[in-house]
Design a protein around this nucleic acid. Structure first.
Lengths: 348, 348
DNA sequence: GCGCACTATTTGATCGATCAAAGTACCCTC
DNA sequence: GAGGGTACTTTGATCGATCAAATAGTGCGC
């Protein structure tokens, strides 16, 4: 087990000083091409890798992002965070960043973790998921000057355009608008919406997508739309019960669009195999069952998050203080995955 | 933005030297209680946190574990890794360890990443998932003296007792044995097994659980058992087709046990709502659909993995070179989650 | 041929912690 | 009271990199 090579060893072999080796790695434009080639050869020969901790100590940067792993198993939609995490890790890697995980029991605890990770120079930026009304976490991060980006819009009134709050989100409005429109085109007119109780930033956004598409179509009155609008907490059973109640009340339902695959699956159980249903998130369940669903382009979300955090300039995590011309947020458009027909029926 | 306090600042306030502060943190038993109290007060007063990178540079340890995030969206069972990851992060945190993610395109690439992360002192141990026959990764790690533990037994002939290979696994045999036995007790005799093609360490293990339970019961001959044994690649469609073919061949099937929830869901589609089916992994799909399934106790797996890696002694990641009396592996027993009845039928 | 600007490279200092070795008390024994 | 042990604390050196400033090397104008 020989010692790992250091900049000094590389310099010795290449016949230059340690600083020149450092420059080749960090500011190649300062080094004469011929010298650079020699150094690069020596690096390759020794298999040299910079010692990340030493670099961090000196630069006071970790090139690492922290992300909290959700405590609750999010049921069916848990895989969304999972896929996002994968996309984020992959893209971060490509930019020389690492991703470190942590857990927290509640927002207050999460803030404590922010502090710990920052003080230890473990991470120098955070990616937050599942933001909510009046989220104390973003406030803390802004006050403490920690770079961060959220996956999810800030849902407060003015926050959305706060230049200090970088965010990426998926345009749920567009997803449900597209889904609803596609059903309308196929001949359905009485399309129900199955979503979550207000206020829910994400939920209300998706609901408006359905409502606007229905309004554009013009076949139904506002009162009729109100009747087709269902709200319940997330879950297969809840979705099934809500739709079942709607049907029993005698309302005509040609199709259902919903705010999640869980609810959509519940709807499927209630309406039977012949009424189209569209879910949201395109989870493995949707694929397995043959349920149409709105897919969030998580690669794009991850790429956008990193781009905002890095401020376009390169490997440096700068947060919102990047050049003032940089955009502060990004809204990506989801796409509808259409599947043949559900294989689930309303047994029991 | 004042500078973060260092050991020196703490020492100044407490009226001791930097090393004493360090000792309070790392070897409190060396410090006189009265002194320790003063130092601890100073630490609290300043809100001091040790600088992780500086410590790592000096000790050449990172107190960080690396784990690869699976590149493929594992379909339905992806959530297993997800839940494991959460359990691991939480338990690691409790022991002062951090978890860092990385991705890789294939085993060879993963080995490259091992090297990068080790050389940069980013991590000092790895947790591997989804091991397979003749896995080159474990070999590399052993040769390069990197501590690691696998979630999954090494499936080579002699590897299972190799003292240098620490592993934790779930006793798939037991899971299927229990599932099969429970079905037998409820009156079924012709229970089919739906699993993956050999050789598959995990799959063959689960298959034996079924087979042994059936043999103990003694109602069927070996030839009859052979006829009830199905093997196909993982997937809902594949499972459905395999079971459908079996039924069409005229074989009697009272129930089905399977190696995964995906296959189980396929089986459900083929047999209809009145034949019991048991899946494996207890994924959100199983819960949503109302499918009985074998649940892996991932908290226990994570705890076991860390215990093996830390060798009982405390916060130090030592790998297999811990005290020779320590156990080298751990097999945890899954438990069967019984659900009322499937809600899925064989439409289309 | 002298000086100035500019480029390329090297040297000294430093980031914040821990290791190793060297003090400093204090107590005990013969 | 000299020597030796034990308990606690401090000092000097170091981990591997980068920053800041100093030094060599080069070209060019006049």
């Amino acid at each position: 087990m020989s010692q790992l090579p250091t900049v000094l060893d590389v310099g010795r072999i290449a016949g230059v000083s340690r600083q020149t080796v450092s420059n080749v790695l960090n500011s190649p434009e300062l080094v004469k091409p011929a010298t650079r080639a020699k150094v690069e050869a020596a690096i390759a020969q020794l298999g040299y890798r910079p010692h990340a901790s030493a670099r961090r100590l000196r630069t006071q940067k970790s090139s690492t992002l922290g992300i909290r792993l959700d405590p609750m198993t999010n049921g069916i939609s848990g895989s969304v965070l999972d896929r996002f995490l994968h996309a984020l890790t992959e893209q971060a890697d490509r930019r020389g960043l690492r991703v470190m995980l942590f857990t927290a029991t509640d927002p207050q605890d999460e803030i404590r973790q922010f502090g710990r990770l920052r003080d230890g120079a473990d991470v120098d930026g955070f990616v937050l998921t599942s933001t909510f009304y009046g989220d104390p976490r973003t406030e803390w991060l802004i006050e403490n000057n920690m770079p961060f980006v959220t996956f999810g819009r800030p849902w407060g009134i003015d926050d959305m355009n706060d230049p200090r709050h970088l965010w990426v989100d998926v345009d749920g409005w567009s997803g449900l608008h597209e889904g609803t429109t596609s059903l309308l085109r196929s001949g359905a007119t009485h399309i129900a919406y199955l979503g979550w109780p207000s206020p829910s930033g994400t939920g209300d956004d998706r609901r408006r997508g359905w409502r606007d598409a229905m309004a554009e179509n013009g076949a139904l009155s506002a009162a009729e739309l109100d009747a087709l609008e269902l709200r319940t907490t997330d879950g297969v059973g809840q979705g099934r019960d809500a739709v079942k109640a709607l049907l029993e009340s005698g309302v005509r339902v040609d199709a259902v669009v919903s705010a999640s695959d869980s609810l959509a699956l519940g709807a499927l159980l209630a309406v039977g195999p012949d009424v189209p249903v569209i879910g949201y998130d395109n989870t493995p369940v949707a694929e397995a069952i043959g349920l149409s669903s709105v897919e969030q382009p998580l690669d794009e979300v991850a790429a956008g998050a990193l781009q905002l955090l890095l401020g376009g300039s390169g490997g440096e995590i700068v947060g919102w203080k990047s050049a003032s011309t940089e955009p502060r947020h990004r809204l990506v458009t989801p796409r509808l995955i259409t599947r043949e027909r559900s294989r689930v029926t309303g047994v029991r």
